[in-house]
Design a binder for these strands. Structure first.
Lengths: 148, 148
DNA sequence: ACCGATTACGTTGATATCAATATATTTGGC
DNA sequence: GCCAAATATATTGATATCAACGTAATCGGT
């Protein structure tokens, strides 16, 4: 006799097939890996690309606002900035008007690298758009935004 | 004069609004955090819950097959097993028929903890199902599966 | 039975992620 | 102006993630 104390296998199948969290993590990993591979010649990961892109704006944003934009913990963003700072792609300066705050900006090198990454993004992204074209990429984006 | 060398701001907006990779990472982080918070009383993360759930089956699977199921790097799974092994929730044994392989199985403690986590999952998951109810959770799952 | 190719996995190093905690600064009530 | 509360960020510790590299076992052709 088996003497099991776990949930019934039927419950497990239900969870595995329906869990939105698992489906999200799986897709995020898989898509992230593909972008990582495409961006590797530039020495960027998908997360670094998104972060640099979110800093490409006329007014240098704060850490908290970028963290909220990326739906990421503030302390994660602080950590993610470190390698980009070391490579001279990003600059972190104290906000003159509020010395608690930091202002995040791209260096010229960061801007140049980001510009080189854009065509890579376009090619890679187009492939994924095609994958969900039948169901509607806009609806998918709306769902993902609603979950964030 | 600004002397910028980065992509035009219009390009950045286009990428930020449309990038499926970014949308996926954002949603995966946000939803993962919510599940982590719900499962915290049990000492589990969303990833550990999904991993334990994928091991709840009659025949102990190999590392490679579970990694493929979770769309996760094989070496990541090896790392993720470590804390669960230390806590006595999972057992890793050498496959007798092929000594390269490993067989992953839940201990009784792992089964019991997983059973306690199921109602937590049900409550938390129901909330997210409602978020995407209008657009259709099944279609979302299908899209996410297609991207994996 | 031998040996090269393949398969399954482990290890290392770098980055990513978040909770808990700590520090510095600003704000608001008095 | 003073001080408690709120705000913005940094640090630490644990886990998560993957590429690159390395090792052991199996398989297949001869």
């Amino acid at each position: 006799m088996s003497n099991r104390s776990g949930p019934a296998f039927a419950v497990t199948h239900k969870v595995r097939d329906n869990c939105l969290c698992l489906h999200l993590q799986r897709a995020a990993r898989a898509v992230g890996r593909r972008f990582d591979a495409a961006l590797r010649p530039l020495g960027l990961t998908n997360g670094q690309f998104s972060l640099l892109m979110s800093l490409n704006r006329p007014v240098a944003p704060s850490i908290g606002s970028v963290a909220a934009l990326l739906a990421m913990d503030r302390t994660t963003l602080t950590a993610n900035l470190k390698p980009l700072e070391r490579r001279g792609l990003v600059e972190v300066t104290v906000d003159a008007a509020d010395k608690r705050g930091r202002r995040l900006s791209l260096t010229r090198a960061g801007q140049a690298l980001l510009a080189r990454a854009v065509p890579v993004w376009k090619r890679t992204h187009a492939a994924f758009e095609r994958v969900v074209a039948g169901s509607g990429a806009d609806r998918l984006r709306n769902d993902l935004r609603a979950l964030s």
